[in-house]
Simulated scan of single mutants.
Amino acid sequence: MAPRHPAPALRRKHRRARLRTLAFLSPWLVGFGVFFAYPLLATVYFSFMHYNQIEAPTFVGLRNWTYVLGQMPLFGPALWNTLWLVVVMVALRVVFGLGIGLLVTKIKSGVGLFRTLFYLPYLAPPVAATVAFVFLLNPGTGPVNEVLSAIGVSAPNWFNDPDWAKPSLVMLSLWGIGDLMVIFMAALLDVPKEQYEAAELDGAGALAKFRYVTWPSITPIVMFAVVTGVVQTMQYYTQALVAGKLASGVSVGPGSSIQPGYPDHSTLTVPQLIYSLGFQNFNTGAACVLSLVLFAIAMAVTSLLMRKSAGLQTAED
């Protein structure tokens, strides 16, 4: 009759295997605990507290949640601006990045030069790129408006106009499209040439080859670009804040302070509102509530996109 319990040697072997696995996982476990689990739990804790970062936190129940979700006047505009940027900016960046990637892969001569020219704006630091872009679109002295006026086109006020501020930020993001261009270019070059040759033998044109050969091959890369773009745009902060400061006439530097969202709260995003509440007004509880709301929305959208991505890949298989 076989023993009901493993031998001591076998138990020691299993224990060593578990310890070895835990040792390999320990860097990830430490990083997850320090940089994700603890901050998330602390954010949940402080969302039920009144805490000004000076005095000890005191429990206030759902007061912070009630204030943010029902009484804060800027929560609605900030959430709308953030979701608008997520939908418009991510969609246009994916389309524009894919188009530039297709263009670069089709160029026969000087491809290295064009790749460099399209990728260089992405290397510019966010603050420097925003400063340059605001200068170019300055309604009074900017070269873009001067050129438009010279050809008889009524130029908008760009970052000084609430209706044009968010589209101007989208244009800024499209200017630095080099990261997506490189990703899509690598995906396009990885499509088997034999499939294109077979499609040509069947009489497929350029549009048919893209629909039936290129698109199924790059769909996972497109979904990757969409998911990462949504996560990044949910955290959109620097460019909108710097553009608003410059357009309002406030210099960017130490000691300068302005309520974010210029003009008329049209560029106010949820991350800006979180920073303003937590570090300018010392309302840490309300800032934590906003952080959790933003985290929940980002997780919901990402989960939905991942499910759609899995469904598309299953349908293609």
Rank of each mutant, 00 (worst) to 15 (best):
D179I: 08
K166Q: 15
E146P: 00
L117S: 13
P126I: 04
K166C: 05
S168W: 01
D179C: 07
E200H: 11
S168L: 05
P139M: 06
A198C: 07
L174C: 01
L148T: 03
L113N: 06
K166R: 15
K193P: 00
A155W: 07
P156G: 08
I177Q: 08
P143H: 13
M181Q: 10
G176Y: 10
N160F: 04
L180V: 00
A165Q: 05
P125N: 12
Y119D: 03
M181I: 06
N157P: 03
A198V: 13
L169R: 04
G178W: 12
V182F: 08
W158Y: 08
G152R: 13
A155L: 11
P167K: 00
L120W: 15
L148K: 02
G140M: 03
L201R: 10
T130M: 14
F114R: 07
A129T: 06
I183T: 10
W175Y: 01
V170Y: 03
Y196L: 01
D202G: 03
V191G: 02
F133L: 09
L188F: 14
P167Q: 00
A155H: 07
A128I: 14
P121I: 08
A150L: 13
N138G: 11
L123A: 09
P192S: 04
G112W: 01
L113K: 05
A187E: 04
V111Y: 03
A124Q: 15
P125R: 13
G178N: 07
K108D: 05
F184S: 00
R115D: 05
E197M: 06
V127P: 15
M185L: 15
G112K: 02
V144A: 05
A199K: 09
S109L: 09
Q195N: 02
V170I: 14
A165K: 07
A128D: 11
D179P: 08
I107H: 02
W158P: 10
I107S: 05
S173T: 11
A155S: 15
L174T: 00
Y119A: 10
W164E: 06
S173L: 07
L174M: 03
P192V: 02
F135I: 09
D161K: 13
P156E: 07
D163R: 14
G152W: 08
A199G: 06
N157R: 13
